[in-house]
């Protein structure tokens, strides 16, 4: 491989890391409140609002139903509004976040639902208000599951980010398609795949380690 190609791969790696990192951050900031809303607003929840719960649940399912490559294109007007452009890394972050947030919210929701109702009852019995239940019971007790779910989300986003090349976002997937596939450069293809495998392994290992530490208590 030429030095230019190595330089190109390094830049692609940074683009992928940036896209996934920023989008994952947005997914957490938006997804956890969304998950808390889905769990606590349902019937028998601590903030019951069944109608709003159904509406939000349907919207979340709607976004989850649309394939990412379609979402990428369908969101172009929205992307232009938010990012001011429809090409490049920052333009890709918009659809990536929009796609990852409902995905992560549903996964976090499962962990939050698994918090024993008895713990919430105990918290109420000692005079916890609802915000205390969120801060002291739901989130800390569900944290290992939420971290595990976040790991799954990040791995899925690394995959999705490859498609962002379709909007000229750059990144490892883009290099693999343009050089590896369209120019028949098998070396580039193999190297990109190796980098992606290594990246996913590192993310998974970090996530598993964090979960193990949290569960060890």
């Amino acid at each position: 491989m030429s030095p230019q190609m190595i330089e190109r791969l390094w830049q692609a790696f940074l683009d992928t890391a940036l896209m996934v990192g920023v989008s994952a951050g947005i997914a957490v900031l938006a997804g956890i409140p969304l998950a808390l809303f889905l769990v606590t607003s349902g019937p028998g929840g601590i903030f019951p609002a069944p109608t709003a719960n159904r509406v939000v649940g349907t919207v979340v399912n709607g976004f989850r139903a649309v394939p990412f490559i379609v979402l990428l294109v369908a969101l172009i007007p929205f992307t232009r509004l938010v990012a001011g452009t429809t090409i490049g890394v920052w333009a890709a972050i918009v659809p990536l976040s929009v796609s990852a947030t409902p995905f992560f919210a549903r996964i976090a929701e499962v962990s939050l639902r698994e918090v024993d109702a008895g713990l919430i009852e105990a918290a109420q019995s000692i005079g916890c208000r609802r915000r205390h239940i969120l801060a002291h019971v739901l989130l800390p007790e569900a944290l290992p599951g939420i971290v595990a779910g976040f790991t799954i989300t990040v791995v899925a986003m690394i995959g999705a980010s490859a498609m962002a090349g379709a909007v000229g976002a750059g990144g490892l997937g883009d290099v693999a398609i343009r050089y590896g596939y369209q120019r028949f450069d098998t070396t580039v293809m193999v190297v990109v795949i190796a980098i992606l495998i290594a990246l996913v392994c590192v993310v998974q290992f970090a996530g598993d380690t964090a979960v193990r530490r949290l569960r060890a208590r």
Binding site: S125, H136, P140
Partner: peptide, 19 residues
């Protein structure tokens, strides 16, 4: 909340926070 702070409660499955 004030009432519940005057009434303690214990449970069959203890309901302690694992975290």
């Amino acid at each position: 909340v004030a009432l519940r702070r005057r009434i303690g409660m214990i449970f069959q499955h203890f309901n302690l926070l694992a975290a």
